[in-house]
Design a protein around this nucleic acid. Structure first.
Lengths: 187, 187
DNA sequence: ACCTGAACACCGTTCAAGT
DNA sequence: ACCTGAACACCGTTCAAGT
């Protein structure tokens, strides 16, 4: 009973590590086998196919690195500070949004699209709540959520596509985030 | 001399069509062969490998659908209208940003990263020029370019990740774009 | 119930042989 | 100079056979 059903999670963990470093395309049953310490045949006992492994890894990511972040930030009472802290997590993501961009480019797979929509809805709801508390009406809160979510994704993608444009640390970064929040919160 | 060197462009065109409908991952030498009307062996006479084909297709995209758009919009004298028209192209992209998200998720390939950076720089310069003309100083124009580029990418990605949140057409869309431009241009 | 290893399919890549 | 078809490598998937 102790080491029961240990392998499925091992596969998912190894797959998530692969996604972190190379995107969804880097998930290879063959390459992961030696890491997990099991054969390809064993893999297909636990999972229907490679896509199921990807979904298992992404579900793990969703719970431990998406929902957990939201839960950690929710208690912050100042809505502006709450938003800023979420932006900080994008700035500081060691994967630099690799998973986010992978989800978007693999959206043709319905299972991946589900993860994409679920995670985005949860983050967007977090933002909408903040804008509600800041006094915006429903329509304005909706508009600003979209703008804020776009800016949030920009924090992941701009460092890749415009190297050097976004300051990763220090006073310049802090002042960029201030400008951004001012703009999003301005009446 | 008439039909000389016709095949390389044929391969690139077919590859671009594949990228349009399924992302970079959908480019398969084997599957494209019958479309082009040539064998895999023939492909490897014209291209070093699959990666070179992807780059050829993306270069074609860069010239015909990125630089061409910028050139078409540059003559517009009102900077705000110029920005709005660029946003319109993101809204109306039949590929819904599939190439943009593919570039981002395949950024580990140096050749793809080059395309990503080149295209982003060109679009960002287009935006910066508009903000300069609107009277913003260097620092503010830089900040607003990043915010505007993020919003621009959002127009591609939000319809995928938050279905229904962004109005694709009509008066609601128009009023969303107005709000967005107001926010980006506000002093 | 769970795992292995062989087998097959698919596709990227190479290459000897053709024109 | 350009193309073909066979061959090989790699990896996803299946499955008969083991424990």
């Amino acid at each position: 009973m102790a080491t029961e059903r240990l392998h499925p999670d091992d596969w998912a963990r190894a797959a998530l590590a692969a996604i972190d470093s190379g995107g969804i395309g880097a998930v290879s049953v063959e390459a992961l086998g030696p890491i997990v310490g099991a054969s390809k045949g064993s893999f297909y006992w636990h999972f229907a196919d490679r896509a199921a492994l990807v979904v298992a890894a992404l579900t793990m990511w969703e719970e431990t690195r998406t929902d957990a972040v939201i839960r950690e930030l929710e208690p912050i009472s100042d809505p502006r500070e709450r938003l800023r802290r979420l932006f900080d997590t994008a700035f500081d993501d060691p994967g630099a949004g690799r998973i986010e961009s992978s989800l978007l480019s693999e959206r043709d797979d319905p299972a991946i699209k589900n993860v994409l929509v679920r995670v985005t809805k949860r983050r967007a709801a977090f933002m909408t709540k903040a804008f509600n508390e800041l006094g915006f009406d429903k329509r304005q809160a909706g508009f600003r959520t979209i703008a804020a979510y776009s800016a949030y994704l920009g924090l992941y993608s701009i460092p890749q596509s415009l190297p050097g444009a976004l300051p990763a640390r220090g006073r310049t970064r802090s002042s960029y985030l201030n400008d951004l929040l001012d703009m999003l919160i301005a009446q």
